[in-house]
Measured scan of single mutants.
Amino acid sequence: GAPPLPPYSAGGREVTMKKGDILTLLNSTNKDWWKVEVNDRQGFVPAAYVKKLDSGTGKELVLALYDYQEK
């Protein structure tokens, strides 16, 4: 199953993602919540729920390892 959710501390809205989604990583300075862009929406997802990909394009991409439903 998915890892436990860290307390929400990102101070911005969250976004929903599905397992297998490829998201653009915008900011990973917060260790628990990373800012991503998905379907032209920006928001935060739990860092433990995604994995960085080596895209080779200069853009940082992450793979959704679990479904996440915004609150």
Rank of each mutant, 00 (worst) to 15 (best):
Ala2Arg: 08
Ala2Pro: 15
Ala2Cys: 08
Ala2Glu: 08
Pro3Gly: 05
Pro4Gly: 07
Pro4Glu: 09
Pro4Asp: 09
Pro6Val: 02
Pro6Glu: 03
Pro7Met: 08
Pro7Leu: 07
Pro7Cys: 12
Pro7Ser: 11
Pro7Ala: 10
Tyr8Gly: 12
Tyr8Asn: 11
Tyr8Glu: 08
Ser9Gln: 12
Ala10Leu: 13
Ala10Phe: 10
Ala10Cys: 12
Ala10Ser: 15
Gly11Lys: 08
Gly11Met: 07
Gly11Ala: 14
Gly12Met: 12
Gly12Gln: 07
Gly12Glu: 09
Arg13Ile: 11
Arg13Trp: 08
Arg13Glu: 13
Arg13Pro: 15
Glu14Ser: 15
Glu14Phe: 10
Glu14Leu: 11
Val15Gly: 03
Val15Pro: 02
Val15Cys: 09
Val15Glu: 03
Val15Trp: 05
Thr16Cys: 09
Thr16Tyr: 12
Met17Val: 07
Met17Asp: 00
Met17Thr: 03
Lys18Arg: 14
Lys18Gln: 07
Lys19Val: 08
Lys19Asn: 03
Lys19Trp: 03
Gly20Asp: 05
Gly20Glu: 01
Gly20Phe: 04
Gly20Gln: 02
Asp21Phe: 04
Asp21Tyr: 05
Asp21Met: 15
Asp21Gln: 14
Ile22Tyr: 05
Ile22Met: 06
Ile22Ser: 02
Ile22Arg: 04
Ile22Cys: 04
Leu23Ser: 02
Leu23Glu: 00
Leu23Asp: 00
Leu23Thr: 01
Leu23Ile: 06
Leu23Pro: 01
Thr24Ile: 14
Thr24Ser: 10
Leu25Trp: 01
Leu25Asp: 00
Leu25Ile: 06
Leu26Ser: 02
Asn27Leu: 07
Ser28Trp: 09
Ser28Val: 06
Ser28Asp: 15
Thr29Asp: 15
Thr29Asn: 14
Thr29Trp: 08
Thr29Lys: 10
Thr29Gly: 09
Asn30Asp: 12
Asn30Ile: 04
Asn30Arg: 08
Trp33Ile: 01
Trp33Arg: 01
Trp33His: 01
Trp33Ala: 01
Trp33Phe: 03
Trp34Asp: 00
Trp34Ile: 04
Trp34Pro: 00
Trp34Leu: 04
Trp34Ser: 01
Lys35Asp: 04
Lys35His: 13
Val36Thr: 01
Val36Pro: 00
Val38Glu: 04
Val38Arg: 15
Val38Gln: 14
Val38Pro: 00
Asn39Asp: 15
Asn39Val: 12
Asp40Met: 11
Asp40Cys: 12
Asp40Phe: 11
Arg41Ser: 11
Arg41Gln: 12
Arg41Phe: 10
Gln42Ala: 13
Gln42Gly: 05
Gln42Phe: 07
Gly43Phe: 07
Gly43Trp: 06
Gly43Ala: 04
Phe44Ile: 05
Val45Ser: 00
Val45Lys: 00
Val45Gln: 00
Pro46Ile: 02
Pro46Lys: 02
Ala47Phe: 02
Ala47Glu: 02
Ala47Leu: 01
Ala47Asp: 01
Ala47Pro: 02
Ala47Asn: 02
Ala47Tyr: 02
Ala48Glu: 09
Tyr49Ala: 04
Tyr49His: 03
Tyr49Gln: 02
Val50Asp: 00
Val50Arg: 00
Val50Ser: 01
Lys51Ala: 10
Lys51Pro: 01
Lys52Cys: 07
Lys52Glu: 06
Lys52Val: 12
Lys52Thr: 07
Leu53Cys: 07
Leu53Met: 09
Leu53Glu: 03
Ser55Leu: 12
Thr57Glu: 15
Thr57Val: 13
Thr57Lys: 10
Gly58Tyr: 09
Lys59Glu: 12
Glu60Arg: 13
Glu60Asp: 13
Leu61Pro: 02
Leu61Val: 09
Val62Thr: 02
Val62Phe: 05
Leu63Lys: 06
Leu63His: 04
Leu63Gln: 10
Ala64Met: 03
Ala64Tyr: 01
Ala64Ser: 05
Leu65Pro: 00
Leu65Glu: 04
Leu65Ile: 10
Leu65Thr: 03
Leu65Cys: 05
Tyr66Cys: 04
Tyr66Arg: 05
Tyr66Gly: 02
Asp67Cys: 04
Asp67Gly: 07
Asp67Phe: 03
Asp67Ile: 01
Asp67Lys: 03
Tyr68Gly: 00
Tyr68Ile: 03
Gln69Leu: 12
Gln69Gly: 14
Gln69Cys: 09
Glu70Cys: 08
Glu70Arg: 09
Glu70Met: 09
Glu70Gly: 15
Lys71Pro: 11
Lys71Glu: 13
